[in-house]
Design a protein around this nucleic acid. Structure first.
Lengths: 189, 189
DNA sequence: GTCTATACGAAGATAGAC
DNA sequence: GTCTATCTTCGTATAGAC
């Protein structure tokens, strides 16, 4: 089946979260951006907004995992570049309008349930990156630590660059991360 | 003069922003947490909520600047430790309830004006840190790059640790940052 | 599955008394 | 400077028809 209404709504929610945050991700906005019919909101999401946002967090969380799926067996530098490029594209292709949808929920939700779901996403990213980096030449200890640093630094850098409407902060951070990785590959910890 | 009503309201707004995000930082909540009288909202903030949030961003932005004021002449490692300790305390002393008030506004506001103010705060942090790090032994180029990395990584790490309700992500990132710094001090770039 | 209509509450904002 | 009352807007959610 082609992208059904439900899927379109979730995609719209992800886009709105990344661009304008949780508050602005209202049903009316989601319906408008997704072209979904008004009457179908509570048909597809009987749990209301929280259910829609939860689905959006899950979808946004799956994207990096899927993207990194092809990197099995790659070197640590390639894995890192892939992750960096992904986030850089989020910024530049949107002209600094978009950030991270998961982070937007994490800092704005009042629901412990939703906060827990964002935490699960962050952990999944850290875990997947750690696996790949360990397979790509880093010691297990370095891999775990650098994976977490990669996620945290990218998230922070995206916030900075989006706010300043400039790629400069992101590129500075990316360069620092590359240097750090080179050092670890040369002298494992 | 003791902290007047206006100041109390701004402090309350900062606390709410850091804990629950922009949406939950409503007048009613701010009045409750600050004990300010209802009738004084638009007396002190004729510009409404946007003016209150702008003042909160400014106050929250000034805190690290003030804190780092005593670090002039200190070594790069001490400056870094000070900045890390500050953010670690935000997490642990609040039992992972608090994050960064400025970031909360940056990812949730729909006002370009407010977004610009958060950008100015981030730039001021980066600038001050770069100054101190350059005075503390780093080359100008390393100082600028590491200052931005420090801000971005801490911001991201705080989001991760708050979401996961665990200090682990933050401490992993902090350890990685320390290693980066040691390497740069040993072999300036 | 989708429609309209509507209830309900929350939040920002304003006016005028004290 | 502060109070109360009120207005408006908006977003979530429900009910019942098609």
């Amino acid at each position: 089946m082609a992208a059904d209404v439900r899927t379109q709504m979730i995609r719209g929610a992800v886009r709105l979260l990344a661009r304008q945050g949780l508050q602005a991700t209202s049903f009316s906005e989601v319906l408008e951006i997704s072209g979904a019919p008004r009457g179908s909101v509570y048909h597809h999401f009987p749990g209301g907004k929280e259910q829609l946002i939860a689905a959006a967090v899950e979808l946004a969380g799956a994207i990096p995992i899927d993207e990194l799926g092809h990197e099995t067996g790659a070197g640590a530098e390639e894995v890192t570049e892939h992750f960096l490029r992904m986030w850089r594209n989020v910024l530049t292709l949107s002209h600094f309008e978009s950030g991270c949808a998961v982070l937007a929920v994490a800092v704005a939700t009042e629901s412990p349930e939703l906060l827990g779901r964002t935490a699960a996403v962050f952990r999944s990213w850290r875990g997947r990156l750690a696996e790949l980096l360990a397979g790509g030449g880093l010691s297990p200890r370095d891999a775990g630590r650098f994976a977490t640093t990669l996620v945290a630094s990218c998230e922070g850098a995206v916030v900075l660059s989006r706010a300043e409407r400039s790629i400069e902060p992101f590129d500075l951070v990316a360069e620092q991360l590359r240097e750090q990785l080179r050092r670890m590959l040369a002298a494992p910890g």
